[in-house]
Design a protein around this nucleic acid. Structure first.
Length: 640
DNA sequence: CAGCAACAAAAGTGA
DNA sequence: TTTGTTGCTG
């Protein structure tokens, strides 16, 4: 049984416990992924059908990684395992089942699109002066969806608890949902919520999947929300061969609906469940473990758990203060060069973490200056770039001509001389006739607009028609090529000057190759599938392979990764912990966990730093070293 | 309608 | 400090 050979006794126990509910409390670096992958391989070796195994993760990165490892261990049969993120899983179920129960197809809308819808609604209501951040509203709506509350129940619930603000929000929620559906969209929350609804309303469908999946494994269980919790419960309740892996010390997503209770109450939810704790750490040096352990012991809401390692030494964890951000960034860069030049580190083995995306800019500038190859993960990622979103909007419109939201994005992109006035008339008219704007354009002659605008609009409509007619004969890649050249977008970009325009053109080229790549990997897939995968997949995997680069990312994104050398910057009160958390003990614990997650990513070297003066909106403010430094065992003597 | 300037807002974390 | 929006002018 060579599958079990390289496992410690606890890990082995976890792998072998296949027939009932199992909770694996897996501290950072204790071989969690190893246990899951070995367990899946073990189940297959016992003769289970690969497609009777369902593995759920939180990021695509994690599921891809897991898939690779399972295939290594179990061979070709690994391909047929259901291994994906919760959201991709939900999408797959909905896509499979909706046609059968006569529900319309849909596309997945991302955050920008969600916000665009909300802003529009707020504008239409004329509320914009009174209502703060649409983001805030969206947050409420998303939390409602996590709780499976539709607009009506949300309103009822808010009324019942006497929350007037939420009652107001429920109106927006109602209109938001209506507008979202009218555009043929589903947001991330919908994917989960609608899957639960689908199962609840169609027992025969639920039964089918219940019977299909003999074994269910969930990674990062501490970050599941209520909807995800229910999906697991619905699918696993009869066979009860449910394995969840998690670590409450690494729960960092409560702000997007994750409920630590899910993992803390697992034993109550699944009676007779086995609990296995993994505490031997294989990742970090003793020094790093000591430091992070000191920190996390300050949290009260956790199970007793003590990580240990056979390693007995390691380099000291280093903490430094700097006068200002630029000094901090400069030090990080020169230390990175030192690691690369003198200690034989590869750039790819080093990561720099920060609490907020805004902190990345200064680091980025310094990295350029020092000629260090770097890559920023997250924030303004590839698919969030303007030119990419413009072109994707064309594709959305192609897939769904009723998608006014995306039409509005591209109607005057590239600039065609269509302004606000024209757009307003179009919207009004389309609203009056209750048809999509694009349909309206088929008959621009009848509209009350200038002859020039008519001509342009007809041209736009004819172009979209041409592409649509070609759609059946061409591959998604060819369609995108047609759009890039035919819409005038390529000419437009070329007419712009400067390196920025050139970079945007390069990005368009990359989008084309991404689509080509997708086509080759998914022979059956159509354009809609591509758009959906773009919504759910972070570009991390595709674009991370080229060259050895230092990784820059937020602490949140760092979870699940490991690097020989790690820098955590901005270790200051107000940043880490973030300022809003100072008054709330629960949030403070989450900030501490976030810091802990960052520290435990480090294998050999860990550097912490803070600055004594930080600029916010251009104004300098003094800041104090984070309380977490002292908790981790650093003596903070000198502040300014 | 497009380009420019003055002005206001922004930055907490993400599938 | 940087980025986005508004309102004016050609």
């Amino acid at each position: 049984m060579e599958l079990l050979e390289n496992l410690n006794p606890r890990q082995k126990e976890a792998v072998l416990h296949t027939e009932g509910p199992l909770l694996i409390i897996a501290g950072a670096g204790t071989g969690k992924t190893r246990v899951i992958t070995h367990k899946i391989a073990h189940i297959i070796s016992l003769g289970a059908r690969p497609d009777s195994i369902l593995g759920l993760t939180f990021t695509n990165k994690a599921s891809d990684e897991m898939k690779k490892r399972v295939i290594d261990l179990a061979g070709i049969s690994g391909f047929r395992i259901w291994l994906s993120t919760f959201h991709s899983f939900a999408l797959r179920i909905l896509k499979n089942e909706y046609p059968k129960i006569g529900r319309a197809p849909f596309t997945v809308f991302d955050e920008d699109e969600q916000l665009a819808i909300l802003k529009e609604i707020i504008k239409k209501l004329g509320w914009e002066k009174n209502i703060p951040a649409p983001r805030m509203i969206l947050h409420y709506i998303e939390r409602a969806k996590d709780q499976l509350l539709d607009p009506d129940s949300f309103k009822y619930h808010s009324h019942a608890i006497g929350d007037l603000y939420r009652e107001e929000v429920s109106k927006l929620y109602y209109l938001y949902q209506e507008e979202l559906r009218r555009n043929g969209g589903m947001d991330f929350g919908d994917l989960l919520l609608e899957t639960v609804n689908l199962f609840n309303q169609n027992p025969e469908i639920l039964k089918k999947y219940e019977e299909l999946f003999d074994y269910i494994l969930v990674d990062e269980y501490q970050d599941t929300n209520f909807a995800q919790y229910l999906i697991l419960k619905l699918l696993g309740k009869n066979k009860r061969k449910v394995t969840v892996v998690g670590d409450e010390d690494q729960s960092i997503y409560s702000w997007r609906g994750a409920r630590v209770e899910n993992i803390l109450n697992f034993e109550n939810d699944w009676p007779d469940c086995r609990v296995i704790k993994l505490e031997e750490n294989y990742r970090s040096t003793h020094k790093i473990l000591e430091c992070s352990g000191n920190l996390i012991r300050n949290n009260r809401h956790r199970r007793a758990k003590e990580l240990w390692t056979k390693d007995s030494g390691g380099e000291p964890v280093i903490y430094r203060v700097f006068p200002a951000c630029r000094d901090e960034a400069r030090s990080v860069c020169s230390e990175i060069l030192h690691l690369i030049d003198d200690e034989n580190y590869g750039a790819g083995e080093i990561a720099v973490f920060y609490r907020t995306n805004a902190q990345s800019r200064i680091l980025e500038e310094r990295m350029r200056e020092f000629n260090i190859n770097y890559r920023i993960v997250g924030s303004v990622s590839f698919y969030e770039r303007k030119e990419i979103k413009d072109l994707l909007a064309y594709l959305h419109l192609l897939v769904n001509p009723a998608d006014d939201l995306h039409l509005k994005r591209v109607l005057n992109v590239p600039p065609r001389g269509l302004g606000k006035q024209t757009l307003k008339k179009l919207e009004d008219e389309a609203g009056k006739r209750n048809i999509p704007i694009l349909t309206l354009l088929s008959d621009s002659e009848s509209l009350d607009i200038s002859p020039k605008a008519k001509k342009t609009l007809t041209g736009f409509w004819e172009f979209m028609e041409k592409v649509r007619n070609a759609a059946s004969a061409l591959s998604p890649f060819q369609l995108l090529e047609m759009i890039v050249s035919g819409s005038g977008y390529a000419d437009y970009l070329e007419s712009l000057e400067g390196w920025e325009a050139r970079m945007r053109m390069d990005n368009v080229g990359e989008l084309l190759s991404a689509l080509k790549d997708f086509e080759e990997r998914n022979q059956e897939a159509d354009l809609r599938d591509f758009l959906d995968s773009v919504s759910l997949i972070s570009p991390y995997d595709q674009y991370s392979r080229e060259g050895e680069k230092v990784t820059l990312m937020t602490l949140h994104l760092a979870k699940g990764l490991e690097f020989p050398g790690v820098f955590i910057t901005g270790m200051e009160e107000g940043i880490l912990p973030y300022r809003d958390a100072v008054h709330d003990p629960e949030e403070m614990e989450e900030e501490r966990r976030l810091c802990y997650v960052g520290m435990t990513r480090a294998m050999k070297r860990l550097y912490l730093s803070s600055v004594s003066s930080r600029r916010l909106y251009g104004i300098s403010r003094f800041s104090e070293p984070s309380r977490f430094l002292e908790e981790a065992g650093f003596e903070i003597t000198q502040v300014y």
